[in-house]
């Protein structure tokens, strides 16, 4: 049992954050830059299916779609396929040799409300099943009651169970209330060893937004400048259109620079985003606005 104390953090200027985030939506991205942005977005997607009704067949279809979107050689594969733990094995088999990673949400996702030993055991088994990346949720109850040591220790325990697998720590910003809290949670997660910090589970109405992602990106920058350790960022939930996604790319570039414009350091958790990007891609090639009926849902 450690006694973790948060570093002294400067306050967040909420008005400035919202204003600056807004400014990233005003860029004009056309033609070649648009094509490059669409390609980059695809390469950064954690293509996700997290439903109670997921089947192995659906996961297989999603994997094949993620490896060769539209069967178009000009398009990259997605970064990872993100599934529930029981689907990891089939995803791993289907993706073998493709370079696409298998990510899985462990730790009693999305609420995180079960006993620590069970959460750690879930992570251990999920990694054993072949997951390359683990998306864990933090203990929001403990965080909001100010029990930072407990949140810290739990992340450390999960990180240990991850072994070689990368750990993404979900803050579930929609439940944290304020940007200050998001900033605190970001530092706490990074101090505890997170490889990525991630906004949301995608199971709440209030998911990733530009301002909340900006607060987290700036925390990543400060942490990097202070410690030299690189931490990645993953907004997830609510990013449904290509246009929204490139607002995020602009923000990453103008906050952390080109080094972060890569799937090793920036991911987008999404399910419907990919189809919107593919529709834009085909529109670019054909000049025709597209219809959802010509694009498979998974």
């Amino acid at each position: 049992m450690s006694s973790y104390t948060l570093p002294a953090l400067s306050p967040v200027d909420e008005v400035a954050v919202v204003g600056r985030a807004q400014s990233f939506t005003k860029r004009s991205i056309k033609k070649d830059s648009k094509a490059a942005a669409l390609r980059l977005i695809v390469s950064m997607i954690d293509l996700t299916t997290l439903e109670g009704m997921d089947t192995e067949a659906k996961v297989k279809r999603l994997c094949r779609k993620g490896v060769t979107p539209l069967l178009d050689a000009d398009l990259p594969s997605v970064a990872a396929i993100c599934v529930y733990p029981p689907m990891v094995r089939v995803a791993k088999e289907t993706l073998a040799g493709s370079g696409v990673k298998v990510a899985s949400v462990a730790t009693a996702f999305p609420s995180g409300q079960t006993f620590l030993n069970l959460r750690v055991e879930e992570v251990r088994q999920t990694v054993e099943a072949g997951a390359d990346e683990i998306d864990m949720v933090i203990n929001r109850g403990a965080f909001l009651s100010g029990d930072y040591s407990r949140v810290f220790d739990e992340i450390v325990a999960v990180k240990e169970a991850c072994k070689e697998a990368h750990l993404k720590v979900i803050l579930e910003t929609g439940e944290l209330g304020t940007y200050e809290q998001v900033r605190k949670a970001s530092f706490l997660a990074m101090d505890a060893g997170a490889d990525f910090i991630k906004t949301s589970t995608g199971k709440l109405a209030s998911a990733a937004t530009l301002p909340v992602t900006l607060v987290m990106l700036e925390a990543i920058r400060e942490y990097f400048l202070a410690t030299g350790r690189v931490v990645g960022m993953k907004p997830a939930g609510g990013i449904k259109t290509a246009k929204q996604a490139w607002h995020y790319l602009v923000m990453v570039k103008e906050t952390l620079g080109d080094d972060w414009l890569h799937a090793d350091r920036f991911r987008i958790g999404a399910s419907s985003l990919l189809n919107d990007v593919l529709m834009q891609w085909r529109r670019k090639d054909t000049g025709r606005y597209q219809s959802g009926v010509y694009f498979s849902e998974d």
């Binding site: 025709r288 606005y289 597209q290 219809s291 959802g292 009926v293």
Partner: peptide
Amino acid sequence: PHVASHMD
């Protein structure tokens, strides 16, 4: 032209 070509 955009009305005529729109796939949806």
